[in-house]
Amino acid sequence: NKEHILAQKEVLTPIEYEHYVKHLFDIGEITKELYIELSS
């Protein structure tokens, strides 16, 4: 869920976080809207 993803932002580097969010989007775990929101 969104809270879990945002928690990852605390422990990952910005680049790792971007890759993580992109991966979730690629596998269909999150919607495009959520992907855009989380990567901003």
Results as ranks from 00 to 15, higher is better:
residue 21 V to I: 11
residue 27 I to R: 15
residue 6 L to D: 03
residue 33 E to D: 12
residue 1 N to W: 12
residue 32 K to P: 10
residue 34 L to Y: 06
residue 4 H to W: 06
residue 14 P to T: 11
residue 33 E to S: 09
residue 12 L to V: 04
residue 2 K to H: 03
residue 9 K to C: 05
residue 5 I to P: 02
residue 35 Y to Q: 04
residue 10 E to P: 10
residue 13 T to F: 05
residue 3 E to P: 11
residue 29 E to N: 12
residue 3 E to I: 08
residue 32 K to F: 15
residue 7 A to E: 15
residue 39 S to L: 15
residue 20 Y to S: 01
residue 34 L to D: 09
residue 25 F to P: 00
residue 13 T to W: 06
residue 26 D to P: 00
residue 30 I to Q: 00
residue 6 L to N: 06
residue 34 L to V: 15
residue 3 E to R: 02
residue 19 H to Q: 15
residue 5 I to D: 01
residue 32 K to Y: 12
residue 20 Y to W: 14
residue 9 K to M: 07
residue 28 G to Y: 04
residue 10 E to T: 04
residue 23 H to R: 09
residue 29 E to G: 11
residue 19 H to R: 13
residue 33 E to A: 12
residue 2 K to Q: 13
residue 16 E to K: 07
residue 24 L to T: 02
residue 7 A to F: 05
residue 35 Y to I: 02
residue 37 E to H: 12
residue 8 Q to H: 04
residue 24 L to I: 04
residue 9 K to I: 08
residue 12 L to G: 02
residue 25 F to K: 03
residue 2 K to D: 05
residue 14 P to M: 06
residue 16 E to I: 04
residue 30 I to Y: 00
residue 5 I to N: 01
residue 38 L to E: 02
residue 29 E to P: 00
residue 36 I to W: 04
residue 6 L to K: 08
residue 33 E to Q: 07
residue 29 E to Y: 14
residue 25 F to S: 04
residue 11 V to C: 05
residue 18 E to T: 11
residue 38 L to Y: 05
residue 16 E to T: 04
residue 2 K to P: 11
residue 10 E to V: 05
residue 11 V to I: 14
residue 36 I to E: 03
residue 10 E to N: 09
residue 36 I to G: 12
residue 34 L to N: 07
residue 28 G to I: 01
residue 28 G to N: 08
residue 40 S to F: 14
residue 27 I to L: 12
residue 21 V to Y: 03
residue 15 I to D: 14
residue 22 K to A: 13
residue 15 I to E: 10
residue 36 I to P: 01
residue 17 Y to H: 04
residue 12 L to W: 03
residue 40 S to R: 08
residue 12 L to I: 05
residue 9 K to F: 11
residue 38 L to S: 01
residue 37 E to P: 00
residue 19 H to C: 04
residue 20 Y to N: 01
residue 35 Y to A: 04
residue 3 E to Y: 09
residue 18 E to F: 08
residue 5 I to T: 03
residue 16 E to P: 02
residue 22 K to I: 07
residue 4 H to I: 04
residue 11 V to D: 08
residue 5 I to G: 01
residue 4 H to G: 11
residue 36 I to A: 15
residue 33 E to V: 07
residue 19 H to N: 15
residue 34 L to P: 01
residue 21 V to N: 01
residue 1 N to I: 15
residue 4 H to A: 09
residue 29 E to R: 07
residue 26 D to R: 06
residue 37 E to A: 08
residue 15 I to G: 15
residue 23 H to Q: 10
residue 21 V to W: 02
residue 27 I to W: 11
residue 8 Q to D: 02
residue 19 H to T: 14
residue 17 Y to W: 04
residue 30 I to H: 00
